[in-house]
Amino acid sequence: MSAQMPDVTYKTNPDIGQPYTRNDKACHDLSIRVRDLNLWYGKTQALKDLNIDLFQKNVTALIGPSGCGKSTFLRCLNRMNDLIPSVHTEGLVEIDGRDVNAAKMDEVALRRRVGMVFQKPNPFPKSIYENVAYAPRMHDLVSRKAEQDELVEKALRDAGLWNEVKDKLQEPGTSLSGGQQQRLCIARAIAVQPDVILMDEPTSALDPISTATIEDLMDKLKEQFTIITVTHNMQQAARIADYTAFFHLGEIIEYNDTKVMFSTPAQKKTEDYISGRYG
């Protein structure tokens, strides 16, 4: 039994001033295609028949009440759920034309192309410099020290952290403030040059000022990366996301252009949630 693919109002094509159609090439620059995805924790089903297309170089926000499966879905995209022994998945998650759950798929390779930023900042017990340089060096993205320095600087600049830390690169990553730590984690993620960055409520543990900084950052980063973020803050979704998907009890209730969704939600449940009737 396959659920209906959620309707999406495509973005406006600037050339003709009309929305793209499903057949336009630009719309087929899909980053991720999900079909009939089901997931169980032991015997409890957490995701039910998910179908969704996620677009390249956009910010997609996943919203919904807590326990609705949005974080679980996010972790399906880079197979972090593999770490939980009781999890069982069925269905298709396709990235760059490949089924990520296929036996042949190397989850380490997958995670290199699909980076992740977590809810709580989790810098490694290393220096700020090493936090960023570690992964690119392991992945052979840099060969010389100068190249490595350059990459670290670029990643830190892209993460908007360079000016704050350029004089203390050798200090431990844990010495930074919470917001800075989270940006360090973002720098760490973009240093390996992934295609997709998953963000699991990246600002929920931060103060409002750090949150604003990171929101600005996401807006810049979407020029280079496909960003999929989980948030339980609807204002945040409205501010930063190009597309928004509303999850409820493991199902996608509605998926649309953010502006459309927040102005004219198609589903009653979405409207109730957005207007704060529950959540």
Binding site: L83, V108, R111, F124
Partner: peptide, 27 residues
Amino acid sequence: VPDSMRQGSLALGMTKGETIRDVVIPA
């Protein structure tokens, strides 16, 4: 050692062995 550290490393495309050697053991 908090699990978030292991996940942080794995999410960067590190193998399990590298995660243990470079993140868990130093921590």
